[in-house]
Nucleic acid binder design. Structure first.
Lengths: 119, 119
DNA sequence: TTAAATACTTTGAATTTTGTAGTAGAACTA
DNA sequence: TAGTTCTACTACAAAATTCAAAGTATTTAA
């Protein structure tokens, strides 16, 4: 979303849209939250269907927004772990009702075992 | 998101992504929820920045998904009112924590008076 | 006769997201 | 020694989404 600082009226949701209101935003936050820590390739397979470039760019966005933290281990082959920051964990908490709504019977079908895990 | 009915694993959030995980999805649901009923042009000005074609297509999507209801009055000039369905209202309820998180100090700035209104 | 009002649609361009393939560098394998 | 494997990405062109601007339909008001 383009900068609207000159716009007349903005809605409180505006700020989230760029990160949350994207196709994979909620999924990624939730997925990391479910597992605590996740590596890039683990995310790739959990989020079946995302492209590597999209995932990489989302992770960078989230890191810049301080929603997730990235830990790089100096190994070969490389090892990188992503986890939620405090702020990210708060966001995930706020997303839970949405996930519950989505999983509710009559709304959408759950096809797998990758469900809501509250720590 | 493409049909993944043949995919191995889907996440419960998958189903919402196409509607909610779009740039204006949450904004529109929240906006209609805030006002009860809204006309097309009212939505256009509340959601400063959206293009008419995008709004029209989102409204059609939401109608098809039975998240909103459309009432057409036979008048000239025309008059059309959009409101949330029961399912839409449930969704909005589920979004409220997210809105609250977003409005929280330190997360994002609120620029206008168009805030959370709970019925 | 012209303008105003509303809810859109149409068009082509700009922006985002996607899929496929490729890169780096050490270690293991033949 | 040469080739393969492993992981976390990047590059790039193609596909999908969103954009702005202009146009459509219809009746009443000036």
């Amino acid at each position: 979303m383009k900068d609207q600082s000159n716009a007349i009226c903005l809605c409180p949701l505006d700020g989230i849209i760029d990160t949350i209101g994207k196709k994979w935003g909620l999924l990624i936050i939730n997925e990391i939250g479910n597992h605590g820590k996740l590596r890039y390739n683990e995310l790739m397979s959990e989020l079946a269907g995302i492209s590597p470039s999209t995932l990489a760019s989302m992770l960078k966005d989230f890191e810049r927004e301080k929603l997730i933290e990235k830990e790089v281990f100096k190994q070969i082959p490389p090892r990188v772990e992503y986890s939620l920051s405090t702020r990210g964990r708060e966001l995930r908490e706020a997303i839970i009702p949405l996930i519950k709504w989505a999983t509710k019977k009559g709304n959408y079908t759950v096809h797998c075992s990758c469900t809501l895990v509250k720590k």
